[in-house]
Amino acid sequence: MNAAPVKPNKDFLKLLTEMGISEQIAEHALICTGNDSVEAAMTFLYDNPEVDYSELSVLTNAEQGDSLSGENVRIDKEEKVLMSEAAGEIHVEQKHGSREHHFDEYDEQFKMVFAVNISLNMGTGKIAAQVAHACLGLYNKLLQKNEAAVDVWLSEGEKKIVLKAVDHVHLKELQKKGESHELISYLVQDAGRTQIPAGSCTVLALFGDIATVDEVTGNLSLL
């Protein structure tokens, strides 16, 4: 009996493409990591820079159904990627699907800002992974602290911007200033597996109404 075809997690795919990653590459990374998480997909892309994505051809569901067997998942004509059978069928629970939205209680528009520590000289892939960490960390924090504002932000197109911070001291100063203005923040400290020392402060994420966020970060340059 053939295993169910592996399909990229739509929510994860949306986040990856919003970070500028092509849909084809994002699908490949999610399938290769068993739809584990956006962070796992970003780490896979960073750790496998030698993959020739120009030749990548993800199979259609029908083709996958014919070719999947046990733990083997064929990504293109020449490449086979080992994956767990548990990744064969992914059930995504829409956490916010049944929630009531009360947008009229907010007059403000919201945005999320990411300040990247440029003193670490991180590579492009590393920065992308760290911003993904910051985005997910802040998003989960927001769901606990201000879920209604998250709904408004989502309804307005999820405004996001990536900026430059001088160093870790600058990140902490921005975090302190942001919190004094009642912005919600999330500071990423790297595990130290690649490129930079463990504990390095890489990215600060801030969320709030646009006017207040601009007051805190308006003097920073775009990355």
Score class of each variant (00 low, 15 high):
Met1Phe: 07
Ala4Asp: 01
Ala4Arg: 05
Pro5His: 08
Lys10Cys: 05
Asp11Met: 10
Phe12Val: 03
Leu13Arg: 07
Glu18Pro: 00
Glu18Val: 02
Met19Arg: 11
Ile21Glu: 01
Glu23Gly: 03
Glu23Trp: 01
Ala26Glu: 00
Glu27Pro: 02
Glu27Gln: 14
Ala29Phe: 09
Ala29Val: 07
Leu30Trp: 00
Ile31Asn: 04
Cys32Tyr: 00
Thr33Ser: 05
Gly34Phe: 01
Ala41Ile: 07
Met42Ala: 00
Thr43Leu: 12
Phe44Glu: 02
Phe44Leu: 02
Leu45Gln: 03
Tyr46Leu: 13
Asp47Gln: 04
Asn48Ile: 06
Asp52Ser: 10
Glu55Leu: 15
Val58Pro: 06
Leu59Gln: 13
Gln64Ser: 04
Gln64Leu: 05
Ser69Cys: 07
Glu71Gly: 14
Val73Glu: 13
Arg74Met: 12
Arg74Ser: 08
Asp76Ser: 15
Lys80Ala: 07
Val81Trp: 12
Met83Val: 15
Met83Cys: 10
Ser84Arg: 03
Glu85Thr: 08
Ala86Cys: 08
His91Pro: 01
Glu93Thr: 15
Glu93Leu: 14
Gln94Ala: 11
Lys95His: 09
His96Lys: 11
Gly97Glu: 14
Gly97Cys: 06
His102Tyr: 06
Phe103Gln: 02
Asp104Ala: 05
Glu105Ser: 08
Tyr106Phe: 15
Asp107Phe: 03
Asp107Thr: 12
Glu108Leu: 04
Phe110Gln: 07
Phe110Val: 10
Lys111Asp: 15
Lys111His: 13
Ala115Asn: 02
Ser119Phe: 06
Met122Ala: 08
Met122Lys: 08
Gly123Ser: 15
Thr124Cys: 04
Lys126Ile: 06
Ile127His: 11
Ala129Thr: 09
Leu136Trp: 00
Gly137Tyr: 01
Leu138Glu: 10
Leu143Arg: 13
Gln144Gly: 09
Asn146Ala: 15
Asn146Ser: 15
Val150Ile: 14
Val150Phe: 03
Val150Tyr: 01
Val150Ser: 06
Trp153Tyr: 14
Trp153Ser: 09
Glu156Asp: 15
Glu156Lys: 15
Gly157Trp: 01
Glu158Thr: 15
Lys159Asp: 13
Val162Leu: 04
Val162Glu: 03
Leu163Arg: 10
Leu163Glu: 02
Lys164Ala: 09
Ala165Leu: 05
Val166Arg: 11
His168Ser: 13
Val169Ile: 14
His170Arg: 12
His170Met: 11
Leu171Glu: 03
Leu171Gly: 08
Lys172Cys: 10
Glu173Cys: 03
Leu174Ile: 02
Gln175Tyr: 04
Lys176Ala: 14
Gly178Ile: 09
Ser180Met: 02
His181Met: 07
Ile184Phe: 09
Arg193Phe: 05
Thr194His: 08
Gln195Lys: 14
Gln195Asn: 13
Gly199Trp: 00
Thr202Leu: 01
Leu204Gly: 10
Ala205Val: 04
Gly208Leu: 00
Asp209Cys: 06
Leu220Cys: 11
Ser221His: 12
Leu222His: 06
